[in-house]
Every structure is written in structure tokens, then in C-alpha cells.
């Protein structure tokens, strides 16, 4: 019980602050609560299948397969796969982090994990179609053309600034995410 309380401490603090705000500014508080309802709904809809897929991926796909396609020495194939998987995804960016953790567990190369995160954040295919209808083909295509090299460059810079030990620590951390 004490352990649970400690883990949810930040949540309880923010929740308390929010209730106090609602008492002082009813309108703002209500608006916030309706947005929270919306986000919770989104989370409840998207998160369960994402995590179930993760569990299945973890159990069924052998580490050797993942290493072959996206690990060290996977080269261009690994980069393209990372972009493709990230782009095909749906859901908010925080949904990408648990998937990245399983990728790391399975021996996916660090730069490919970073490319995957970048692709998920900004080149999602369903979102691209939405962008075309809202902001026009030209805007969406230009952004996509800048973003693809952009996320690859960012991934390589990130790989360069992180030391081997730091990367290893992140990979070790990923091992223990479903303990």
C-alpha cells in the first residue's frame, strides 16, 4: 500500500492542485476535466491493444529475428523498417516509448530505436492524410520531405552524443520494464 502511494504521489499532488483550481475557477476547472475525460478515453481505447501487441511481440518474435532485421549491421533495411513501423502507428507519442523498450530488449540498434521514435512523432501515415485535408498537399508534402531526413539526422546525433555506457544503461532499464 505504501509503495503504491509513493508511486502515485505525483499524480495525487497534481490531482489535488486541480481540485483546488476548480474550486477557485469553476469554468477553467470544468474545461480541464472535460479534456481529461477525452484524453482518458483516448488512452483507454488505444493503450490496451498496443500493450497486448507488445506482450505478443515479446513472447513470439525471437531476439535473433529482430537483430537480423533491425539490429547492429541491419543497415538501410533497419532504417527503413524503423521509419515504416513508426509511420504506420496510431496514437500519441507516449505510446511509442513502451514499444521502443521492447525493441531495445530484442536487440534493435539504438539509432533505429531513435528513428522509430522520430517517425512515430511526426511522419504518421494516418496523420499525414489528415494534414493534407486540413493544410493542403503542398504543406504536408514539404513537411514530410524535411522530416524524413530530419529524424534520421537527429537519431544519428543522439547516437553520437550518448556514450556506450549510457546506452547500455538505457537498454538494461528496458529489460526490467515488465518485471
Amino acid at each position: 500500500m505504501k509503495k503504491i502511494l509513493k508511486r502515485y504521489r505525483a499524480f495525487l499532488v497534481v490531482l489535488g492542485a486541480m481540485l483546488i483550481l476548480t474550486i477557485f475557477n469553476m469554468e477553467l476547472g470544468m474545461k480541464a476535466i472535460s479534456v481529461i475525460g477525452f484524453s482518458l478515453k483516448e488512452m483507454i481505447l488505444v493503450i490496451p491493444p498496443v500493450f497486448v501487441l507488445l506482450g505478443l511481440l515479446d513472447i513470439w518474435v525471437p531476439r535473433a529475428t529482430m537483430i537480423k532485421y533491425m539490429g547492429e549491421g541491419s543497415g538501410l533495411k533497419g532504417i527503413l523498417l524503423a521509419i515504416f513501423i513508426g509511420s504506420a502507428a496510431a496514437g500519441p507519442l507516449y505510446g511509442a516509448f513502451p514499444i521502443a523498450a521492447v525493441f531495445m530488449k530484442k536487440g534493435v540498434k539504438f539509432s533505429n530505436v531513435m528513428i522509430f521514435i522520430g517517425a512515430w512523432s511526426t511522419t504518421k501515415i494516418p496523420m499525414f492524410l489528415f494534414e493534407v485535408t486540413s493544410l493542403g498537399m503542398k504543406f504536408a508534402v514539404i513537411r514530410l520531405l524535411i522530416d524524413i531526413p530530419g529524424i534520421i539526422i537527429i537519431a544519428f546525433i543522439l547516437s553520437a552524443v550518448m556514450t556506450k555506457d549510457e546506452v547500455k544503461k538505457i537498454y538494461d532499464n528496458a529489460e526490467h520494464f515488465d518485471d
Binding site: A10, M18, A32, F51, V52, G55, P98, F177, D178
Partner: peptide
């Protein structure tokens, strides 16, 4: 086992998720 892993991975990050959702609302 896969479902158990799924639940554990979710429960592990749930406190942070909840904080994010509250902050986004605000």
C-alpha cells in the same frame, strides 16, 4: 505470459501516464 507482460508493462508506466493526462487537461 504475453498478457501478463502486457499488464506489467502498462502498470509500470501508469502513474506517469495519469500525470501527463492531468497536465494536458490543464
Amino acid at each position: 505470459k504475453a498478457l501478463k507482460k502486457a499488464w506489467k508493462a502498462f502498470e509500470n508506466i501508469l502513474p506517469e501516464f495519469l500525470v501527463v493526462i492531468l497536465l494536458v487537461g490543464l
